Simulated scan of single mutants.
Amino acid sequence: MPPDRETSSVIHDTSVIMGRNEERDMVIGDICNKDIGKHENGEVRVYGIWGMGGLGKTTLAQLVYNHETVDQYFDLKCWVYVSENFQVKEIMKKLLNQ
């Protein structure tokens, strides 16, 4: 198994942006839709991006995270790296530290 590669929200290679607009816009449309995810009971909505390694999941997440529409829609954003062997306590610590 390859070692964990910790990621960040920073896009290092701008050439990866080409051709990802459709997927990026679809995710942004879903997460910024005021009619989706309304919860009176305080539940948190999660949007999962999954697939085999090398498909561009992290790149897609970076493009969405850094888009101006997402910046305007959310008051607070946080990027947390989650490895394959993650621990919920560790993820929560990372979130709180951010």
Rank of each mutant, 00 (worst) to 15 (best):
P3K: 13
P3W: 08
D4T: 09
R5Q: 09
T7H: 02
S8A: 05
I11V: 09
S15C: 01
S15M: 01
V16I: 15
M18A: 10
G19S: 07
N21K: 13
N21C: 06
E22Y: 11
R24L: 04
R24E: 12
D25T: 11
M26H: 08
M26F: 14
G29E: 04
G29T: 00
D30M: 13
I31L: 00
I31Y: 00
I31M: 00
K34I: 14
D35H: 06
D35A: 12
I36W: 10
K38V: 14
H39E: 04
E40A: 13
N41L: 13
N41R: 11
N41A: 09
V44A: 12
V44L: 14
M52I: 09
G54E: 01
L55F: 11
T58R: 01
T58W: 01
T59I: 11
Q62H: 01
L63M: 07
N66M: 00
N66F: 01
N66E: 03
H67V: 05
Q72M: 12
Q72C: 11
Y73H: 14
D75L: 12
K77R: 00
V80N: 03
V82F: 05
E84S: 10
E84V: 08
E84Q: 08
N85Q: 03
M92Q: 10
K93E: 09
K94S: 03
Q98L: 04
Q98S: 04
